[in-house]
Amino acid sequence: MINVIKRTAQNAGRTALHFLMGCVLVAGLATSVSAQERTAISGTTVSLAPLKGFVPSSKFAGLEHAEAKASVLVVELPAEAHPQLSALFANLETAKTNFAKQNITIDDAEDIETAAGKGRILTGQQALGAATFDKWIVLLKGAKTVMITVQAPEDSDLDGDDIVAMLKSVSLGAEPTLDQKLAALPFRVRAAEPFRVVDTFGGLGVLMTSGPLNVDPKGSQPMLIVSYQTGGQVAAGQLAAVGEKLLSTTRGFEKAEITKRDKIAFAGSSDGSLLSGTTVGDSGRKRFAQYMGVGADGRFVRMIVSADEATFPNLEPAIKAIADSIAFAQ
């Protein structure tokens, strides 16, 4: 599934979406939606009638039930992503193959009618450690391509009919402003000249660049991306190793040469990690830096920046200012 999102992002010219990680969220106990009022999901086009006990999350775009460890995650992609994802959702065997790469077993696929129009829902399970979770994933089309994921422990009292009823309540509105999308992110960040914000992505990250282009598929301009990890937990002592693994699986950085490894203060953590070095992309050799910091709940925020070797030194003051501005949302 992540590979499909990455290819879709490339086809749509949205470099940032290559950094969208698999969304592994824990969801659980819930009851009927019938008495609930519609709730707008901050920073997205989505509104829905939530299951009782669910409240807006400060960690991601969606809802969570802290006591039951339950969640409803909203991910929005460019409108151009819908045809490719729609083909994946429409073909059950294709969905089974692609989601299996994320350790998700898809059992069924069906059409549903929502307040936003026709949608397609996949149901299945995902094994996370010793636990197994039921999963519902719906694809919708509006101003954005919308994927909504609900997840619950298989032994919870969550009823599948209630989940489907909640998803049928989804309506899609106008795209929020850039300021609204930035405010809805699970972290805070400020741009510093010459960098500017291009857009947020998936409710989990933000893309910045310097130069005339907003869409830069060849990577000719400096690029800076900050993204938040939603699933799993990482101990501070493991951060550098996790960072190196992430870097090796990030498009354009698979063969990056790490020349320096530093322990730094980042995103409110004194145990942050900074990897720096060089990589070779479509537009030649570049310098890069990757910052990572862990929050109190073990989840991390990641900032990666790259630019031509000749340009990078002049950008370092701005890069530091942006890095210093990053903090987890309260």
Score class of each variant (00 low, 15 high):
residue 191 A to W: 05
residue 131 A to R: 13
residue 211 G to L: 04
residue 24 V to N: 15
residue 329 A to C: 00
residue 274 L to R: 00
residue 172 L to S: 00
residue 129 G to W: 10
residue 184 A to W: 07
residue 284 G to M: 07
residue 51 L to V: 10
residue 214 N to M: 15
residue 63 L to W: 04
residue 193 E to K: 15
residue 94 T to G: 00
residue 156 S to E: 05
residue 94 T to C: 11
residue 297 D to A: 09
residue 85 L to H: 04
residue 34 S to L: 14
residue 324 D to P: 07
residue 61 A to I: 12
residue 326 I to F: 01
residue 113 E to V: 09
residue 198 V to Y: 09
residue 64 E to A: 09
residue 125 Q to V: 11
residue 143 A to Y: 06
residue 76 E to F: 07
residue 232 G to W: 04
residue 9 A to M: 13
residue 310 A to V: 04
residue 18 H to R: 15
residue 189 V to N: 04
residue 82 H to N: 11
residue 217 P to N: 13
residue 96 K to T: 14
residue 57 S to F: 08
residue 285 R to M: 03
residue 190 R to D: 14
residue 270 S to L: 03
residue 82 H to R: 04
residue 185 L to S: 03
residue 44 T to H: 15
residue 60 F to H: 02
residue 1 M to H: 12
residue 206 V to S: 06
residue 253 F to Y: 09
residue 137 I to H: 12
residue 174 A to K: 12
residue 55 V to H: 06
residue 113 E to S: 08
residue 26 V to Y: 10
residue 146 V to L: 11
residue 295 G to S: 06
residue 47 S to C: 14
residue 255 K to G: 00
residue 227 S to P: 04
residue 128 L to N: 11
residue 289 A to N: 01
residue 303 M to G: 05
residue 145 T to S: 14
residue 204 L to H: 03
residue 200 T to D: 10
residue 59 K to M: 06
residue 142 G to E: 11
residue 146 V to Y: 08
residue 76 E to H: 13
residue 82 H to W: 13
residue 228 Y to M: 08
residue 326 I to N: 10
residue 231 G to C: 03
residue 327 A to P: 01
residue 20 L to Y: 14
residue 101 K to M: 15
residue 175 E to F: 12
residue 206 V to L: 12
residue 282 D to Y: 06
residue 31 T to Y: 08
residue 125 Q to F: 03
residue 228 Y to H: 14
residue 130 A to P: 02
residue 119 G to W: 00
residue 201 F to G: 13
residue 316 E to T: 06
residue 148 I to H: 10
residue 22 G to W: 13
residue 100 A to L: 05
residue 36 Q to C: 04
residue 55 V to L: 14
residue 241 A to Q: 14
residue 314 N to Q: 13
residue 255 K to T: 05
residue 300 F to N: 13
residue 102 Q to C: 09
residue 72 V to G: 07
residue 273 S to C: 02
residue 210 S to V: 00
residue 101 K to W: 13
residue 195 F to R: 07
residue 260 K to F: 01
residue 20 L to K: 14
residue 327 A to L: 08
residue 123 T to K: 01
residue 97 T to C: 01
residue 186 P to Y: 10
residue 147 M to N: 13
residue 282 D to A: 05
residue 262 D to Q: 12
residue 315 L to A: 01
residue 325 S to W: 12
residue 91 N to I: 08
residue 67 E to L: 14
residue 29 L to F: 07
residue 190 R to K: 14
residue 62 G to T: 02
residue 230 T to V: 07
